[in-house]
Simulated scan of single mutants.
Amino acid sequence: MLQAEFDQFALEYQQQHAASIRLSGEMPDFFAQYKIDDVAARLARSGVKPRRILDFGAGVGNSLGPMRAAFPDSEITLLDPSSQSLDIASKRFPGQADFRPFDGETIPYEDGSFDLAFAACVFHHIPEDLHVGLIKEIGRVLAGGGSFFLFEHNPWNPLTTHAVRNCAFDENAVLINGRDMRARMEAAGFSSPAIVYRIFFPRLLARLRPLERYLTGLPVGAQYFVHALKPAV
């Protein structure tokens, strides 16, 4: 999570992202929107309305628009090691969040500061030996009973691996399968992490997407998320 590496791509992130996923037939906004829709739907089923939200590794703020629409009354913090990315995000969405730089190790908030933590395709950029420690750090700033949603690319999906291979800012990425990520969240102290696989059909087959709700247990979707709760004190 070197600042220089992310600053290098900040200005070109949107264009490079769009180019890398062109085979899906979708634009980056589609992927940002479905993630927040999934989070909001899962929390709504539990009757949860988070007051304080942490977007970990928020980059140029692609998730902030959908997140602000889904949680209009929440306090939202975008955290990222790239100051240039955060500067872009703050100009895209002035006054809509707290844009906070991060040293890659310690989240600059007190214990229990957030009710919801969210990470969208961040951990494949982070060395494996740092994963458990960073997930513990996210857990530290979550309140008891708070949720963590961690989205990642699925290395078992051929379109996903093709997109990553052809994306300049993913040059050093190491994809993580869902089972390994779930195990790391458990090792970091989160209880009963659940894996949900997503995005089985490209836009060409979008009429089949209503079937996806029956496929979420199959490890072949383009992406997945792991949802876990911090044990209540």
Results as ranks from 00 to 15, higher is better:
45 R>C: 13
48 V>R: 07
41 A>Y: 00
82 S>H: 00
107 I>R: 06
118 F>W: 10
122 V>T: 14
92 R>A: 12
93 F>T: 01
112 G>H: 04
113 S>R: 05
52 R>A: 14
62 N>F: 14
115 D>S: 04
92 R>D: 07
112 G>A: 13
75 E>F: 08
89 A>S: 12
53 I>H: 02
106 T>K: 14
91 K>L: 14
79 L>T: 02
32 A>I: 00
118 F>C: 03
69 A>G: 06
62 N>G: 15
61 G>F: 08
41 A>N: 06
108 P>T: 09
89 A>K: 04
75 E>T: 08
87 D>R: 12
41 A>F: 01
90 S>W: 01
35 K>W: 05
104 G>T: 02
81 P>D: 11
89 A>M: 08
113 S>I: 05
123 F>N: 10
63 S>Q: 14
79 L>D: 00
52 R>M: 03
80 D>H: 10
86 L>R: 09
76 I>P: 02
116 L>G: 08
81 P>L: 12
33 Q>L: 13
34 Y>C: 07
37 D>L: 11
74 S>P: 03
96 Q>G: 00
35 K>R: 15
125 H>S: 09
41 A>H: 07
32 A>K: 05
56 F>S: 07
53 I>E: 03
64 L>C: 04
97 A>R: 01
120 A>G: 14
60 V>C: 11
95 G>I: 10
76 I>Y: 04
33 Q>M: 08
67 M>H: 01
58 A>C: 12
66 P>Y: 10
61 G>W: 08
102 F>M: 08
101 P>D: 10
104 G>P: 01
121 C>E: 13
59 G>W: 05
32 A>H: 14
85 S>D: 05
124 H>L: 15
102 F>N: 09
61 G>N: 07
81 P>F: 12
108 P>L: 11
35 K>Y: 05
37 D>E: 15
84 Q>M: 10
94 P>I: 03
106 T>D: 08
114 F>M: 10
99 F>S: 02
52 R>Y: 02
62 N>M: 13
122 V>I: 13
63 S>T: 14
123 F>K: 09
90 S>Q: 15
76 I>H: 04
53 I>T: 00
72 P>Y: 03
86 L>H: 11
38 D>F: 10
66 P>N: 13
71 F>H: 01
38 D>R: 13
83 S>K: 12
103 D>P: 06
97 A>F: 12
87 D>L: 13
56 F>G: 07
38 D>Y: 09
81 P>K: 11
112 G>M: 10
63 S>P: 02
102 F>P: 06
39 V>M: 11
76 I>V: 13
57 G>S: 07
52 R>S: 14
55 D>N: 04
43 L>C: 11
58 A>R: 04
88 I>S: 05
